[in-house]
């Protein structure tokens, strides 16, 4: 199940507090990890943020290619948005604290999304 995949990834990286599988076409969060601290409004805003940052697969927000992933960093922590390689509107939204080890986490998030996306 998708939620099991998200929970397992979150258990390996506790500094990532929220993992959400979303569809950018509809702007909807489909599944989250079971202990996310974010409520519905915050999740909707997260999805809108990912949509603004990544842009549409055919109309990238920045650059001339659909970005494979995007990192957004600020005082409030770090967010990683990962696109599924073959279904570019399927994305994994990850919200972490400043302590999240991006170099270690990003490949695992990509692998997790690929498994979810292929199963779906």
């Amino acid at each position: 199940m998708v939620s099991d995949e998200l929970d397992a990834l979150q258990a390996r990286f506790p500094a990532c507090e929220t993992l959400a599988y979303a569809d950018l076409t509809t702007g909807m969060i489909l599944v989250t990890n079971s202990n996310t601290p974010l409520e519905r409004n915050a999740l909707n805003r997260l999805c809108a943020e990912a949509s603004a940052v990544l842009g549409a697969a055919t109309a990238p927000s920045l650059g001339n290619s659909a970005a494979e992933s995007a990192v957004v960093s600020g005082q409030d922590g770090v967010r990683l948005f990962v696109r599924a390689p073959f279904l570019p509107n399927d994305v994994l939204l990850c919200v972490g604290t400043a302590g999240l080890d991006l170099a270690a986490f990003a490949p695992e998030a990509q692998a997790c999304l690929q498994r979810i996306s292929e199963d779906g």
């Binding site: 805003r45 927000s61 290619s65 970005a67």
Partner: peptide, 28 residues
């Protein structure tokens, strides 16, 4: 793209005043 990007980001409910870093993998 930059101004349009900032506009879209602001409309998504995020601050344009707080410092931000965006890193888009393989965007070129």
């Amino acid at each position: 793209q930059w101004e349009r990007f900032r506009g879209a980001y602001g409309k998504s409910g995020q601050s344009l005043d707080a410092p931000r870093l965006f890193m888009l993998e393989r965007a070129l």
